[in-house]
Simulated assay, not measured.
Amino acid sequence: MDAMTGLRLLPWTDPDGKPCYLSSDDGSGPLSRRADAIEAVQESMAAELLRHARVLLDAPRADKRELRYLAERLCEALRDVLRVAESRGARLPSYGEGDDPAPRGGGCD
């Protein structure tokens, strides 16, 4: 949930392309679970597309049409995962000045 608004940005838009939000007290309801599942699919598809992109970009004979199609799909995947990141980032707890969210001890040196 966004601490400022109490709304969760959902991983889809309305028919006009406007963002959709969920107002809920917790993240365990059916619509929250559906959004979580769609986000997982979007992340998986982006990872698979990235693997495909590497193969295509390494192919010396990839033509302009293939590369353009790849670029379009990469743009879609990037849009989706940025929306997931925005939604999840908005639901992270905020820390006040002087609060230290990092655990003590066992850190990287």
Score class of each variant (00 low, 15 high):
Ser87Lys: 02
Ala85Lys: 12
Thr13Leu: 13
Val81Gly: 02
Asp2Ala: 10
Asp2Ser: 14
Ala3Gly: 15
Ala40Gln: 12
Tyr95Lys: 00
Gly107His: 04
Arg79Thr: 06
Gly29His: 01
Gly6Lys: 06
Leu7Ala: 01
Asp100Leu: 09
Arg91Met: 09
Pro19Asn: 01
Arg91Ile: 03
Glu97Trp: 13
Arg8Met: 05
Leu82Ile: 06
Ala46Trp: 08
Asp63Ile: 02
Arg65Glu: 13
Ala59Lys: 13
Arg61Glu: 08
Ala102Thr: 13
Ala62Gly: 03
Ser28Leu: 11
Leu92Gln: 14
Leu10Ile: 01
Glu86Trp: 00
Glu86Thr: 13
Met45Asp: 07
Pro101Asp: 01
Leu70His: 08
Ala59Gln: 11
Val81Tyr: 03
Arg91Glu: 04
Asp58Val: 00
Asp25His: 14
Val84Cys: 02
Glu39Gln: 14
Leu31Cys: 06
Ser32Tyr: 02
Asp2Arg: 07
Asp16Ala: 13
Ala53Asn: 08
Ser44Arg: 15
Asp109Val: 12
Tyr95Pro: 04
Gly27Thr: 03
Ser24Thr: 14
Pro101Ser: 05
Val55Tyr: 01
Ser32Gln: 03
Arg34Leu: 00
Ala102Lys: 13
Ala46Gly: 10
Leu82Asn: 14
Asp80Tyr: 00
Asp99Lys: 06
Leu78Gly: 14
Ser87Pro: 01
Gly106Val: 10
Ala40Ser: 11
Pro30Asp: 15
Thr13Asn: 12
Ala85Ser: 11
Asp36Thr: 08
Gly89Val: 09
His52Cys: 11
Gly96Met: 09
Leu74Phe: 00
Ala71Cys: 10
Ala3Trp: 03
Ala53Asp: 06
Ala90Asp: 15
Ala77His: 01
Gly89Asn: 15
Glu48Arg: 13
Ser94Thr: 12
Glu48His: 07
Asp14His: 07
Leu70Pro: 04
Arg104Tyr: 12
Leu70Met: 02
Ser24His: 07
Ala102Val: 12
Val55Thr: 05
Arg61Thr: 11
Tyr69Cys: 12
Glu43Gly: 12
Pro101Gly: 06
Leu56Arg: 04
Gly107Lys: 05
Ala47Thr: 09
Arg51Asn: 13
Ile38Gln: 05
Glu97Pro: 05
Arg88Cys: 00
Pro93Trp: 03
Ala59Met: 11
Val81Leu: 03
Gly106Tyr: 01
Arg33His: 11
Cys75Arg: 15
Ala40Val: 09
Glu72Trp: 07
Ala62Arg: 02
Lys64Leu: 08
Pro60Glu: 15
Val41Ala: 10
Leu82Gln: 15
Ala47Cys: 13
Glu86Asn: 11
Leu70Asp: 03
Met45Ala: 11
Gly6Pro: 00
Pro103Trp: 10
Gly98Arg: 01
Leu92Asp: 09
Arg65Ser: 08
Arg68Leu: 11
Gly6Ala: 00
Glu39Gly: 04
Met1Asp: 05
Ala71Val: 05
Glu66Asn: 08
